[in-house]
Design a binder for these strands. Structure first.
Length: 396
DNA sequence: ATGTAC
């Protein structure tokens, strides 16, 4: 089936307009289109913008921005405040030894050894707000990636950010961990959304805003920990949430896997095997609800990836390297397979569509050098009894 | 996505 909204013109379903920013060349699942339609028919939904990384999610379309007069916490889900932060490290890329970088980044696996409570307080958050989780990446599609500069399209704009072809960048994708999940738990029953003036909505929004701030701080602490591990410093270039609700002209702007675009520069992640992009959003794009794609977007869901790739040892070893010699640290085999580059759409096509829609100009292309996802957890099999071994073996 | 439901 073709893509009914691919012409980019607004289509009307219910009261809401759906404006798409992807071309026929982008892979868009029918189930995601169905979800867009369903959301467009919900009470209070006014306008929807959908991006080329659009794919179906648990409660609604991922890769879309939804403006509604009613509040829909489920459109955001549990990882409130999730996003990408780009930093520059105080060390030129040519000085990096990738195997050493990979080894040192394993320090991220444990907890933050600094004063989490003090950092929370400095960010205006309660010191007892999940201090033990602060500075941890989490699972799923989250990562911390050391990048080099592949090419620069706008030298002046790139230099104005204090960046050059020699720069080493650090892209952190993480969110609010257990906090966002706990906040979502408080409104799990509100599947039909909330009246924004209701006290329950106000309470949720206050907790939501704290989770957004916590997630931003989390990315900063992760970057700081990575920089410390690499014996260098770092400086923030851009912090861009893609999972949050903001007030816009008296209505709620829900962004689910849609990057906030009303800021100077936005990093858009590729898969771990392909380049990421630093783009400049076109100002004041009301039609795109001041949003952008947040990455490549999934092509295959996690479950269907099992059996698709990583069957043999040599295939799994291939997944631990990227095509240009970079390294991937992911000692969790299931996660390595679920997050294989083949599970994602072509990020180049995503950028092409955003450029052709006039939503962005690309400043630079960044190549992955070392992608940290997860290092060895304590080996549970080694802890088990001999009987446990036999049980496990018989299950296979 | 999640100190992962049971």
């Amino acid at each position: 089936m073709g893509n009914p909204f691919a012409d980019g013109s607004p289509a009307f379903a219910g009261e809401a307009s759906i404006h798409t920013f992807y071309s026929e060349a982008s892979w868009i699942e029918g189930a995601a289109i169905d979800q867009l339609r369903q959301v467009s028919q919900r009470v209070g939904v006014r306008r929807i913008a959908a991006f080329p990384d659009l794919h179906p999610g648990k409660y609604g379309p991922v890769g879309s921005a939804i403006l509604a007069t009613r509040l829909y916490p489920h459109l955001i889900g549990n990882d409130i405040g999730c996003g990408m932060s780009l930093f520059v490290l105080d060390i030129p890329a040519r000085k990096l030894r990738l195997d050493k970088v990979a080894e040192r980044l394993k320090a991220l696996e444990g907890g933050f050894e600094g004063d989490a409570a003090a950092r929370l307080t400095a960010a205006g958050l309660a010191p007892d707000l999940y201090p033990e989780a602060l500075g941890t990446i989490g699972g799923g599609n989250h990562f911390c990636e050391v990048q080099g500069v592949e090419s620069v399209a706008d030298t002046q704009a790139f230099a104005a950010l204090g960046l050059s072809r020699e720069s080493t960048l650090l892209l952190v994708h993480s969110g609010s961990r257990a906090l966002g999940s706990a906040v979502f738990d408080t409104i799990r029953d509100a599947t039909d959304g909330l009246d924004g003036t209701h006290e329950r909505a106000t309470r949720y929004l206050r907790a939501h805003d704290a989770a957004v701030a916590w997630a931003r701080l989390n990315r900063a602490v992760i970057a700081e920990r990575a920089a410390d591990a690499l014996r260098t410093g770092c400086r923030l270039i851009a912090d861009v949430p893609h999972n949050l609700i903001e007030l816009h002209e008296g209505a709620f702007l829900h962004r689910k896997g849609a990057a906030k675009a009303d800021i100077p520069v936005v990093p858009i992640a590729g898969s771990r095997d392909s380049a990421s992009f630093l783009v400049r959003p076109t100002a004041a794009r009301e039609d795109a609800l001041f949003s952008l794609a947040h990455g490549a977007g999934r092509k295959y869901d996690r479950r269907s990836m099992t059996g698709r790739v990583g069957q043999t040892r040599s295939e799994r070893e291939k997944l631990a390297r990227n095509g240009s010699g970079g390294l991937v640290i992911c000692d969790d085999r299931a996660l390595l397979i679920e997050e294989a580059p083949a599970a994602y759409k072509n990020p180049l096509q995503v950028i092409r569509d955003l450029e052709q829609s006039g939503l962005v100009t690309t400043l630079a292309t960044l190549k992955p050098l070392v992608t940290f996802k997860k290092s060895s957890p304590p080996d549970k099999r080694a802890e088990g009894t001999k009987r446990g071994h036999e049980k496990r073996r018989s299950r296979r």
